[in-house]
Design a protein around this nucleic acid. Sequence first.
DNA 1: CCCTTACGCTACGAGTCGTAGCGTAACTCA
DNA 2: TGAGTTACGCTACGACTCGTAGCGTAAGGG
Lengths: 225, 225
Amino acid sequence: MSPSARRTGRPRSAEADRAILGATRAALVELGWAKLTLGDVAARAGVAKTTLYRRWASKCELVVDAVAAVFDEHLEAGDHGSLHADVEAAVIRLAALLERPETGTALMAVIAEAMHDESLRCRVRSAIVDRQKRLVTLGRERARLRGELPREEDPEAAARNADLIFDAVAGTVLHRLMVSAEPVDPRWARDFTDLLLYGMTGADTGGAAAAGPVPDGAQKPAGSV
Amino acid sequence: MSPSARRTGRPRSAEADRAILGATRAALVELGWAKLTLGDVAARAGVAKTTLYRRWASKCELVVDAVAAVFDEHLEAGDHGSLHADVEAAVIRLAALLERPETGTALMAVIAEAMHDESLRCRVRSAIVDRQKRLVTLGRERARLRGELPREEDPEAAARNADLIFDAVAGTVLHRLMVSAEPVDPRWARDFTDLLLYGMTGADTGGAAAAGPVPDGAQKPAGSV
DNA sequence: CCCTTACGCTACGAGTCGTAGCGTAACTCA
DNA sequence: TGAGTTACGCTACGACTCGTAGCGTAAGGG
């Protein structure tokens, strides 16, 4: 499996990879998950169906990689100066990502499938979930430096908290878009951010809560990973 | 379409309906969504495949009805004495429902499919989503009577808020179970409830936050901290 | 130049889909 | 009781997708 193990022989065409993943996205947009067939993807990509099967064992794995590529292109955690602004921006960006016809729908279907397939679950985790969790941890560290969040004593509790926040943000946005089938407009993003920061009891106080408790933050210049 | 329009002729067998929905659940448990075929369901139910197609146009609609039946059996909003206890109980009950092998996975797949099918989306909405939203509204009304939540002046804003809470609760639990693929244990349920009620800024302080802006929260022992 | 691996192409059995046709069963109304 | 209507079980069918095998060819390395 190491790269050195494949020194000899004809190398795999990197261009074919790009063509296949691109064709997968296009097919997802046009046909959706259910009607997407590997034969169709192969035809769009201009490669033989057998080539596709040599690289991906199943439709699920192919789609995971295609979706993960989209996530990689559009996910980042910029510093917006305050925890509130960071969360709000993350909500809006995640929503924009999931509103694309090739991502949200396919992701749901793949995750549903992954419940019956351990290896697929690992692939989803490493390709998509873990990378997003890193962004949550990053944002929380920034907020801690700004003094918006208390220090975390117990590292295990900190990890639990980060996971919880991640599930809350990603899950709520996903549910809003997929299940409730309603858009994430700026007002909703603000309301949800308020809920997340100040809770049900505090969020009802309206816009007053948005006047955040941070006088001057933004020490960190958006360090990319 | 009115029930009186079907006065004449042989009536549809209600027992067949029950057998089919039951067989669908069983097939979902054994095979999962992807490998579930209508032919298999018909065989399990002891009915002809054609009978199945006469009642449900597609696999999706059948599964929606089967899942909705499970939800109807297990969803209720009992009064637990406080907003905190109500939310926590709802989280745990919803999690128990989604952890069943025949519900969560299938629901995800159907919702993914519904993005491309307007009529299916309506069916999901009326059969599952709207009924759950009613429970949220109910719980919030009770909390308002207890004085745990302020009065809602604007009814439109109140509806927005209820929708937001619903997306937050259902979405986060769904994401925890399906995407993160980790269990909803009592501790997580309590942590999440704290987050929902008091926000990120308050929840992080640990148990101290519970003695916050609410008469007295955190009745539930369950704490291993 | 030989070896190794990837690619394109064709063809195939297996399985599912959704429908049509037929005879029969159940229920209503005159 | 008999006619009309609708549902059911059964069989069979064409169309489609799946995933694989076999073959000859292309592209790199020792």
